[in-house]
Each structure stands twice: as C-alpha cells, then as structure tokens.
Amino acid sequence: MLAHTAPAYTTPNGAAFCGDSRDLLRHLDDNSIDLVITSPPFALQRQKAYGNKDQAEYLDWLMDFAALVHAKLKPTGSFVMDIGGAYQKGVPARSLYHLRVPIRFCDELGFFLAEDFYWFNPSKLPSPIEWVNKRKIRAKDSVNNIWWFSKTEWPKADVSKVLSPYSDRMLKLIEDPDKFYTPKERPSGHDIGRAFSKNNGGAIPSNLLKIPNTESNGAYISGCKLVGARPHPARFPAKLPEFFVRFLTDPGDVVLDIFAGSNTTGQVAEAEGRRWLAFDERLDYLATNVFRFLPKEAPPEQLRDAHARVEAGEAVNLTDYLPQAALRFVQAAE
C-alpha cells in the first residue's frame, strides 16, 4: 500500500509509518481501508506536547484529513473519531467546535453520521481546574464524543460481536423466566412478551461506553520506563478501539489510525487478527510503540535495541524479536 516509503517498524499483521498523515494517505489506494479509528489532538486552550491546534483553526485543519479518509475508505467502511470538548477561553462556557465536526464532515465531505457514541471515563481527573476545583461552578468533564461516520448509509457492522455481559438479574431471568418476570404491556403500548427471556449470548450494548483509562503497569509503560522515554500523554484505553474493531470489521480487514500516538489501535488490531497501518509524525512516539508488540518479559537488551533502531530511523521488523514459540503461532495462524 505504501511501497514508496519505508515503515518505522512492521509486525506480522501491520506497519507503522512516520510522516504527515495527509501525505501518507495520498499514497494509499482509494476504497482500500475498512476502518479508520483515531483520536486527533484536541482543540484545547493550553498547548500540549503532542501538537494540538487552537479552536479557531482546528476544524479547517481536521477537514484536510477527513477529506482524504473519505476517499480511502471502502464503500462499506467507517471512520470513528474520539474527540473531547473544551471551554471557551477565559470563561465557563463550552466551545461548540467538537459539535461542528459532524455537521461539516457530513455537509461538506459527504460522510453520514452512522451513530454518535459517548465515552465515559470514570477515572478522569477533575477539569478544568479553574471552574471545577477552584471556583466549583462546573461539574467534572468525564465524557468524550465518539463520532462514527460512514461513507454510505449502510456501513459494515455487526453488534452481535460486541454484546455486553448479562447482569446477574438477567441471568436469573433467563434461567427461570416464570419466577422472575410476568409479561405485560408497557406504557408505550409495546407487548414485549418473553422476548427478553432468551439467552442471546449477551445484551445489546448502548452508545454510552464506560471504560476507565487507568493503564499504569502494562508492557508499554514498562518499556518507556526501561529506556527513560516519556509515555504519550494522551493515550486511550485498549477497550475503546477494541469495541469498534470488533463491531465494524472482520478478521483480515484493514484498520488505520492516522494519529497513532502510542498505537493502541495497532496493538488491538494485531490481537484481533486485522491488518493495520499506523501514521504519526513523531518518530520518538513510534519508537516507544514497539513495546506494545514485544513480550513484556523479553530481555531488556532486546527491548532497548528495538526501540533504539526505530528511533534511529531504521525500518525494523519486530518479528525478529519474537520468541520462536510465538513465531510458530503466528505462522500457523497465517
């Protein structure tokens, strides 16, 4: 797909590339990607190390990427974007920039808004400090918008792949419906009968995704500590891309993250048997990504070597670092 440029590193299922995603996207074939899932730098008031834009220029900047994504998606493909809200500068009033994203994407680029999701992070720290902690005039901002865009009205999706575990009460109902439930008509006039007493393997999930962001001792964090590198400051938890990768793609499909950061998306896609691509303009971030694909228990010298080679600009095949047992497993899967 990107024969013109060498990857920063490759794995059995994917490859990460360093560069401006707009340039890299232009070299992809049109109608070739099944899912783009990403979390772009948010339009925050305070500049962050990962290069966020201010709110005034943010939408035009983001539209450049979205126009290219639209061309590269398959007709059945999806574009999932995690984006957080913000306050206007100096006052406790919300910006509307993140709400204008779906309007512009759909009106100007031809996307469809398949569904709006909301990521509730119960572990998020209280912010903004001025309005929440100091003056105590606003509640903690703990929800991000997740916009699910599609190229047509009928993107590929299968919610049965992301069913939620049943509650204890529901399991009791399934086991003995007569004891725990008497069918009756609801106030809306719907007669649900015993439709909910059948075991379907799980419950249909809602569009509110409650996923704490609390990783503190995984292979990625441990690897960063080993080489003295600062972890990416805006990582999302693996459960977030995992939900959409399972929901919107099949094994062998191509998943792309255009603002890869710590490359949680690539790690999830690799584990789920999807092919993947990751783009980021920071080589130092991509160098620490290698810890997501190498065993945590690998010898420290191997972890340091893989990181150093990527950071030096080599095209590193991480398969060379896998133990023989893991390599045999990968080859059998292929």
Rank of each mutant, 00 (worst) to 15 (best):
K134R: 15
F291H: 04
S127K: 14
T182H: 15
A315H: 05
D20Y: 10
R169M: 11
G110V: 10
N217L: 09
I174C: 01
C224P: 00
G84K: 10
P126S: 09
L59R: 03
G202S: 06
N200G: 13
P7K: 00
Y97D: 09
N121I: 01
S216I: 10
L99M: 11
A298S: 15
Y181W: 08
V268R: 01
D191H: 15
F293W: 03
R46W: 12
Y87S: 10
L62E: 09
W61H: 12
A238N: 02
A326K: 05
R275Q: 09
A234K: 02
F65Q: 05
I204V: 15
N13E: 09
D23M: 09
D158G: 03
P231Y: 01
F65I: 08
T152R: 07
G90Q: 09
A3F: 12
K134Y: 14
P122T: 04
Y118F: 14
R304W: 01
P92M: 08
P233R: 05
Q88V: 10
H98C: 13
L303I: 02
K172I: 02
Y9H: 15
Y166S: 02
P300N: 11
E115L: 08
L113Y: 05
W61C: 07
I204W: 14
L163A: 13
A271R: 00
H27Y: 08
K136Q: 15
L240M: 05
D54K: 09
K198G: 10
V330W: 00
P300L: 05
K225A: 07
S150A: 13
A269S: 11
S95R: 07
F244Q: 09
D250S: 13
Q45G: 15
P183I: 14
W276I: 00
G14I: 00
D82W: 10
V254N: 07
P7Q: 02
I137R: 04
A287R: 02
Y9D: 06
K184L: 12
V69K: 03
L171E: 04
S216K: 13
V268L: 02
V162R: 13
G110T: 10
R135Y: 15
W131Y: 15
Y58R: 04
P205A: 14
L327N: 00
A71R: 13
P295V: 00
V162G: 12
K124F: 13
A8S: 12
I221N: 08
P41D: 08
L163C: 10
A6C: 06
E301Q: 11
G19W: 03
I192R: 14
A219R: 07
E130T: 15
G313E: 13
Y50R: 03
A71P: 06
F149S: 08
F279L: 05
A315N: 07
A312N: 06
T264R: 03
L240R: 03
N121R: 04
N263G: 06
P241A: 07
R275Y: 02
L96C: 12
M81S: 11
D320S: 12
D107Y: 08
T152V: 06
A308M: 03
L2C: 00
